[in-house]
Design a protein around this nucleic acid. Structure first.
Ligand code: FES
Ligand code: FES
Lengths: 146, 146
DNA sequence: ATAATAAAGGATGTTTTTATCTTTTATTAT
DNA sequence: ATAATAAAAGATAAAAACATCCTTTATTAT
């Protein structure tokens, strides 16, 4: 297990993939191509995107030439929106040692250091936009698979 | 889910608890008291400590006046030893987006930022010793429960 | 209108994590 | 030696995460 659940890892990679494949042109990309592009189990990813679609984080249309895409507004959203939608906000606010409440007045031993790490993760995800890496993904400098 | 698995959260809290309860005197503390002291399910924690005991991270003796304790060497070990024993080293070396290999030459979009966060977590856990918070835990400034 | 396409929805299955319970073994005190 | 204690070991169970499959609905091209 890493920082995120597997579901969330797939979700982030999939959204990055959709972003760079459909930005600009009004094109769509299908579940098969996405799953192939990010090395994820296709039916499981379908469920994840179905959920993100319901929540308005990605857009989709059915039928021929249908598929997933991102509108201009979606491309500007921060990654934290995806993480919060999938894993919740525990990673941003929860106690690192699992106490029910992270508290300043009765903290766990790692509180001070953890708070900073947590905040750094939070800021990273808030400052990173979904469409931010499109160029590097198109040129292949960055990778979403293997 | 936070940064660590629930098992690992219990493990760290339990080891801190044993440390501050038994440091100095050659006393032992039983599973019941530990579970109560860190708000964890007793039989589950028993399994976790059994595992840590096999791995030499905590010490134990059976029978009357028996229980768990930490020898001088164990008190000086870094928290990273516990995390590695329970959750493995994915959190120290794994890709934040779940790629099979974190790589400098074909990195995921978040690699550069992630690497720093990961390293910070690693250093925190390497620099923090198991016995380091005993005083603050005894005085109650720091908390391991609720 | 009809057939083809692709996501949505719903039901189900598997694996891993989290948790409990019972029996055995080691240690101590009597 | 014997009884009492407390962890170790092993078997089992519940819940959550991860994953698949089948049917339905919306869209498009013919
Ligand atoms: S109390 Fe544990 S991180 Fe704040
Ligand atoms: S490749 Fe993803 S963190 Fe290094």
């Amino acid at each position: 297990m890493g920082i995120f659940s597997k579901t969330c890892e797939y979700a982030i990679r999939a959204v990055f993939f959709i972003a760079h494949k459909t930005a600009g042109q009004s094109s769509r990309v299908g579940i098969k191509e996405i799953a192939g592009g990010i090395d994820s189990p296709e039916p499981f990813l379908a469920k994840i995107l179905q959920d993100l679609s319901r929540k308005g984080i990605v857009q989709s249309t059915k039928g021929p030439n249908g598929g997933f895409y991102l509108d201009a507004a979606s491309l500007l959203r921060p990654l934290s929106d995806i993480v919060e939608a999938v894993d919740g906000d525990d990673i941003f606010y929860g106690c690192g040692l699992g106490l029910k409440q992270c508290s300043e007045i009765n903290p766990c031993p790692l509180h001070n250091e953890f708070k900073e790490i947590r905040n750094r993760i939070h800021h990273l995800l808030q400052d990173t936009k979904i469409g931010e890496f499109n160029d590097e993904l198109i040129t292949g400098i960055l990778s979403l698979k293997k």
